[in-house]
Structures are given as structure tokens and as C-alpha cells.
């Protein structure tokens, strides 16, 4: 029931992904959350380059726990994506193809996803220990001083995600909630 997908993504791949698809993602992905996004946008505003190739990349909204000796990474489940909404449309315009997080996205992000073909995956919030098992390599790419908020390059293998908003604007949060709503008063 899972589809296997490998990064980097491109239009040909994201065209095929539909809201509700269960995906096992493999390849390189980049971690970034609040402060890293803020710095990336500040870099762009100064006319500087981003610390990694944004075109066709996937960003994972996560701040991992420190690894114990012998671990690649500590627990690393998704954080709430909505906090990155303000910074996201410009990254999508530059070629970002996928985001992994949890929770709602803004109208502006969804419009950018449709226009420039990018997909929003969610992973299970709070499943940090389980998801850490799927990360095979982790190296710091930028902003080391930010600690858990630094940008890491993760090599993931069969990392389980769900296509939650696709490039056609289908939103699994809305579709599924409507299906299971049995409340007649509200």
C-alpha cells in the first residue's frame, strides 16, 4: 500500500503524488525549522545564496534530539509546519519540491504549491523515536550555532510520510475530516 519515492523530486514525480498516498521516502532531505528559515530568507534578501541547492529538494521541519553514542540522530518527528508558512512561498518559487511536517498550511503556501508544483507531506507528530530509525546519516550543513535548529542533511531510507496536500490543491485534512464528522450540531 506504500509507494516508494526517492529524492530529489521533480515535476514528473510530484505530478503523480495524490493526497492520501502513503509514501516511503528515500534519499537526501534537509532539516530546517523556525530560525533556519528566518536566516535563509535574510540571506536571500541580502542577495546571497542559500546553504544548499533548493531546486528539487525536500525540507523536513524538525528539530532533532541529540544522538546518544552510537545513534545517527536522536528522536526526530515533525514540528508544526504553519510556523514556516511566512517563509515558504519564496522557497517554493525557487524550486523547493517537497515539505515534511505536520499541521495546517496557509492559503498562500497552498497557492504557491499549485503554481510551482510542490507537495506537502506529513509524518506522524510525536513519533520521533520511530522516525529516527529511518535516518541513516545526518550531517550539519549550516547554522551550527543554532543547535537543534541547524540545517542538517539527512539520508533517509523508507521514511514513512503521507501526501497531505498535493499539487492540485487536494487537502487530506479537509477531505478526511468531512468523511468522519458525525456531529450534526456544528
Amino acid at each position: 500500500m506504500y509507494k516508494k519515492v526517492t529524492t530529489p523530486l521533480d515535476d514528473g514525480i510530484v505530478n503523480q503524488l495524490k493526497a492520501g498516498d502513503l509514501i516511503l521516502l528515500s534519499g537526501e532531505i534537509y532539516t530546517a525549522r523556525d530560525e533556519a528559515h528566518k536566516r535563509m530568507i535574510e540571506s536571500l534578501n541580502r542577495g546571497e545564496k542559500l546553504p544548499f541547492e533548493i531546486r528539487n529538494s525536500v525540507i523536513y521541519y524538525v528539530g532533532p534530539c541529540p544522538p546518544k553514542p552510537g545513534q545517527v540522530v536522536g528522536s526526530c518527528g515533525p514540528t508544526t509546519s504553519g510556523r514556516m508558512d511566512k517563509y515558504t512561498p519564496v522557497l517554493i518559487e525557487l524550486g523547493l519540491k517537497g515539505m515534511i511536517g505536520k499541521g495546517y498550511r496557509s492559503k498562500e503556501v497552498i497557492e504557491a504549491m499549485k503554481k510551482y508544483k510542490a507537495v506537502y507531506f506529513t509524518a506522524i507528530g510525536g513519533a520521533g523515536a520511530l522516525l529516527a530509525q529511518k535516518v541513516k546519516k545526518a550531517e550539519i550543513v549550516a547554522y551550527e550555532d543554532l543547535g537543534t535548529e541547524a540545517i542538517y542533511k539527512f539520508l533517509v531510507e523508507d521514511f514513512p510520510v503521507i501526501v497531505t496536500i498535493d499539487i492540485y490543491g487536494n487537502n487530506l485534512y479537509e477531505i478526511e475530516k468531512e468523511k468522519y464528522k458525525t456531529n450534526l450540531k456544528r
Binding site: V62, C65, S75, G77, T79, G128, A129
Partner: peptide, 13 residues
Amino acid sequence: IAKTQRMPICQDT
């Protein structure tokens, strides 16, 4: 997994 591997259940500790 968290219990047996002695690691945080969620990364947001």
C-alpha cells in the same frame, strides 16, 4: 521503541 531503546518518545522534549 522509546521505552526499549531509552530515547525520547517525541523530539519536542
